[in-house]
Computed example of a mutant assay.
Amino acid sequence: MVLTPPFEPMLAQAAEYVPGTGVLASGFAAEQKFDGHRAILFTPASPGGRLLLQTRRGTLIQDRFPDLVAVAGQLSEGLVMDGELVVWDTATGRLSFEALQRRAAARGRTATALAAKTPAFFIAFDALQIDGTELLALPYAERRRRLEVLFAARALTSPWTLCPMTTGPATAQQWWDDWSDISGVEGLVVKALNQRYRPGSRSSAWTKIRRRNSTEALIGAITGALARPQLLILGRHDATGRLRPVGRTVPLRPDASRALAEHLTPAGPGHPWAGAKFSSAWGTRDVLDTTLVQPDLVVEISTDTSIDRGGVYRHPIRYVRLRLEATVDDVPLFGGGPAAAEG
């Protein structure tokens, strides 16, 4: 069977890492998890065809990445790779999810201009087809071996990148401990070495774990009733003193909801978010039904590393506890990055 788009990628289950248990068990491998866009890459089966890039949801986006299309001749024919699209921002010298978003939406001359300023890279972590031979039934260890052979045989270099992988527990633990020093790496994906590739499935044989930080924010609004809040809309002040939204929490546990309700105060006149609308999820237009509250309660939160340049968390935040002893001045400024919670 020759693989063609649309193709449903295999998905990983999210899990928590429990410190002290070891990141990697016997029979598993760990890959670095990059903060980008999941993509499936298809090369033509014969000369004269065109590289295809498909998003996780099946949209073809190769016209937004002309820099990758231009060097597709470096790849073998009849190749299908699963991987991550990332973008390097030459102005900041770092991988940039915001720049990736701009490139994913651009076409024509705009796409060409952005490619010069923010070049794209394809980080391959799985080979699904090589030389027209489909590999889905092979175990992950063999697919990975063939992917490494492909990269070595064709001497592939930038923008084609082989995702770092290890089967060594010590190396995996070092990656986990030092991940914050690596631009654009937000965690690890742990994969069973004997697992076949199962399109469209979310399997426990693939587990993604993100490193989380403890930090503080202010409650600016809630969903639900003041007597039983459901979600918290959180904010931080910027350098001018303006309260800026940074994200929303996952649904509160009943005990946390009851405890918070005792301290929430309805917003008075002049709330900085009066008239504002908040999306139900990052990147969507669905709007939450919110109630503004007095933005003077400090909460400790747990967040992952997916943060926009401005300081907004892309994934839902976990509420940890209310910090009645803390003041507004104890909260990091908007865009200032995480700060470890005390106490």
Score class of each variant (00 low, 15 high):
G20R: 07
I123T: 06
L60G: 00
R198D: 15
D126T: 05
Y17S: 08
G336D: 06
F28A: 07
V320K: 10
R103T: 04
T90R: 14
H263I: 00
G184K: 03
T59C: 01
V320H: 03
A99S: 15
W282D: 10
V299Q: 05
R198M: 09
G200P: 14
V69I: 10
L60I: 13
T207H: 07
T133M: 06
S214N: 09
D131K: 03
S203T: 15
F125T: 09
A99Q: 14
R321M: 13
I219P: 05
A45Y: 03
T215P: 14
I307A: 03
F122T: 09
V298A: 06
E300L: 07
A15N: 08
R309W: 12
D126V: 03
I40K: 04
I130A: 04
C163W: 02
L252H: 01
A70W: 01
I209Y: 02
Q173N: 02
R57T: 15
L226K: 07
W88T: 05
R318G: 10
R244I: 14
L226Y: 10
G235S: 11
L114F: 01
G268Y: 12
S46D: 07
A111W: 04
L24V: 00
L150T: 02
P272K: 06
A72P: 07
V299Y: 14
Y17F: 09
G108F: 04
L322F: 07
D82W: 03
T133F: 03
G335D: 04
R196H: 11
V86F: 07
W176Y: 04
D131C: 01
G36I: 00
R318K: 12
T43C: 04
A105M: 11
L24T: 04
L150C: 12
D82Y: 01
G184L: 01
G49V: 14
S183M: 02
M1C: 09
L188S: 01
L218Y: 14
G58P: 05
L297I: 13
F97K: 10
F278S: 00
K33D: 07
I123S: 01
D238K: 05
V328G: 01
H315W: 05
T171K: 13
G235T: 03
G73K: 09
H263M: 11
K208Q: 15
P44G: 04
P254G: 09
F125M: 02
E98F: 06
P159M: 12
S180T: 09
E31P: 01
R196V: 06
R57W: 12
G187N: 08
I301N: 00
T290D: 01
T112M: 06
D63M: 13
D255N: 13
D178E: 12
P254Q: 15
T92C: 08
R202S: 09
Q174L: 12
A70Y: 03
G49F: 11
G336I: 00
G268T: 11
E216D: 15
R210H: 10
H37W: 15
K117A: 15
G275L: 08
G132F: 00
T161Q: 10
A274Q: 15
Y140L: 14
F97Q: 00
L3K: 13
S257T: 14
G336T: 00
E77W: 11
E300I: 12
V185T: 06
P254E: 12
E342W: 05
A14L: 14
A256D: 15
P139A: 03
V331G: 08
T291L: 11
A267I: 04
P251K: 03
R285H: 15
T240V: 09
L85E: 04
N213R: 11
L95E: 04
F34E: 08
A72Q: 14
P66W: 05
Y197G: 06
K208H: 14
